[in-house]
Design a protein around this nucleic acid. Structure first.
Lengths: 209, 209
DNA sequence: GTCTATATTCGGATAGAC
DNA sequence: GTCTATCCGAATATAGAC
């Protein structure tokens, strides 16, 4: 019927979808700014709407509820962290690469405290990331696991120790010395400590078999 | 003038003060129950008043604002943690005592997630513990520092590493395996790792001098 | 100290016109 | 998709009688 308009009809939805996605991104970006100012739990859709030149009800065209907004923010923060890791220059020395990974991770938390809160604390009542939003978080975990594998660490218990080390450094840096480097500077030492422990345990295990 | 009533006049304020303090404690206890149910940030003074058989405005006789309530809860949680540590049986082996300390601390967080949140996360917008409420937190820190001193650890950087280890274990246990023991069981290993690292560094330092 | 009553503000969410 | 208008509920806090 409308043969000449078919390309138009096929393109238009894509453009619309892109524009829509772009605007969603703008909204999310402003939501972060608001969260930094007022606290994550204190975001109001009224303030948010004002910042993106919309009326408050119009936000419901982009997010079906406030929790859906948090979900999108959760995914956004995790994608940002994954991107941060991916952009790191590749290093030949696997141990140096591990230190680099931890530094980038703790640095991300330190530079993005509210993102860190949403990702790692459970601070919003009723919020639980959807499966979809959680996917980039898994991706991040895998990136860490890969660098651990490169130094011969793969046992689940070893991974758990490692995650708790990184979590602890990030937490203390964020909570006790925001903006500083008091725990950041300990990273090489902590990684050393961890790898030495792995070696030590390997030796013990080897000698007893 | 009222000589015969002077003992009465001296006692009555004490009794009143005690009753008042006792009721404050009841209110705080119910506040914790509410926080466990709805989330720390979602406590409402209405619900809280109902639970202690008061009308909502009457709470203002006990706490001058909601933030003052949080402040009292913060102090309460820290006192409870300090008490938990103090009640531990004394151990002769200083290393065992250190493991015991970490176990009790992480266990406390695991058993009291909302208290952990209030103490260690900054989750309530606008809340900052008063100097008075912060005192027991310092006391807790000192208890840890004492046990570290008993194994020869005293350097500030070493203390920072240790606090981040404990913080990381607690965090992962609370966030990723609430109610379980996945990170709890790693405690002896992590303490070993830490102390071995201290030894190793002492050796290096000693050989270079 | 406790109450009733109320001020005040703000929150998320919905209806329906355009 | 965006708007105006509005609902409805909830929140903290205060005034003033008892």
């Amino acid at each position: 019927m409308t043969a000449g308009a078919s390309t138009l009809a096929d393109d238009q939805p894509d453009r619309r979808a892109r524009r829509r996605a772009a605007k969603r991104q703008v909204i999310i970006a402003e939501a972060w700014a608001l969260a930094e100012r007022d606290g994550l739990a204190a975001i109001s859709l009224r303030d948010l709407a004002e910042r993106v030149d919309l009326r408050q009800p119009s936000l419901y065209s982009y997010f079906e509820s406030k929790l859906a907004l948090y979900d999108a923010m959760f995914a956004d923060a995790n994608r940002m962290l994954v991107e941060t890791i991916r952009r790191l220059p590749e290093l030949d020395d696997p141990k140096a690469a591990l230190v680099q990974f931890v530094r980038a991770t703790v640095g991300f938390s330190s530079d993005n405290i509210v993102r860190h809160q949403l990702m790692f604390d459970r601070t919003i009542p009723g919020f639980q990331p959807s499966e979809h939003a959680y996917r980039p978080a898994v991706e991040f975990y895998d990136l860490g696991a890969q660098r651990l594998a490169a130094v011969g660490v793969w046992k689940p218990a070893d991974l758990d120790v490692f995650t708790s080390l990184v979590a602890g450094l990030a937490r203390q840096q964020v909570a006790k010395d925001p903006g500083g480097t008091r725990w950041m500077v300990l990273i090489p030492r902590v990684v050393d400590m961890f790898l030495s422990d792995i070696d030590r345990r390997r030796d013990v295990e080897g000698s007893s078999s």
